[in-house]
Simulated scan of single mutants.
Amino acid sequence: MTEPRPRHCATCGRALNPREVYYRFNLVLEGEQDVLDSGDEAEDGDRDALAELVQRLEDGPEDASELEDQVHWERAGVVCSACRIVVVRMLDEGAATPRPH
């Protein structure tokens, strides 16, 4: 019987022993916006605004993958027991906890 391939913690990078407990994660961040500008413009105005937006995106410095990452970003992997505690604590804290931003 062959040994499973070595795994590494996505947070600290430590090699995980095949007999060690590890935790799988899937994280997806998707951009959303609840309120859109609802101005009283006619459909032609909407088309003009959309055409202007597309032109700004084409002329802008960002490449398409950077813009896509702003709307949809996902990662999957494994973390060790020690890093799991830190990740869960960080994602589980209440809104009253001061944030870095």
Rank of each mutant, 00 (worst) to 15 (best):
E74Y: 06
E66A: 11
E58F: 10
V88W: 05
Y23V: 04
A76T: 08
T2L: 12
C12I: 01
E68S: 13
P100E: 07
R56D: 04
A42E: 13
H8D: 00
H8G: 00
D46H: 10
R7T: 01
D46Q: 15
L67Y: 04
L16S: 00
E20N: 02
E68H: 11
E58A: 13
A95C: 14
G60Q: 02
Q70R: 07
S38Y: 08
N26M: 04
H8M: 00
A82W: 01
P4Y: 02
E62N: 07
R14F: 00
A96T: 09
V87I: 15
A42P: 07
P100Q: 06
C9F: 00
V28P: 12
S81G: 12
Y22N: 07
R84W: 05
M90H: 11
T97F: 13
W73H: 05
T97V: 15
R14V: 00
Y23N: 04
E43V: 09
N26I: 12
A42C: 08
G39K: 01
W73G: 03
A42I: 08
G39Q: 03
L36K: 14
R99Y: 06
A51C: 09
R75M: 07
R89D: 09
E74R: 06
L91A: 10
V88Q: 03
P18F: 09
E52S: 08
T97A: 07
L27D: 06
Q55G: 10
C80R: 00
N26S: 13
G39V: 06
D40E: 09
R24F: 15
E43C: 02
R84H: 08
V54D: 02
A15E: 01
H8A: 00
P100N: 05
D44P: 03
M1S: 07
L50A: 09
R24D: 08
A64S: 09
L16E: 01
R24Q: 12
H8K: 03
E62K: 05
G45R: 07
R99K: 06
S65L: 14
V78C: 03
H72E: 06
A42D: 11
C9R: 00
I85N: 06
T97N: 08
E30Q: 09
V86C: 11
C9S: 01
V71F: 08
R56M: 10
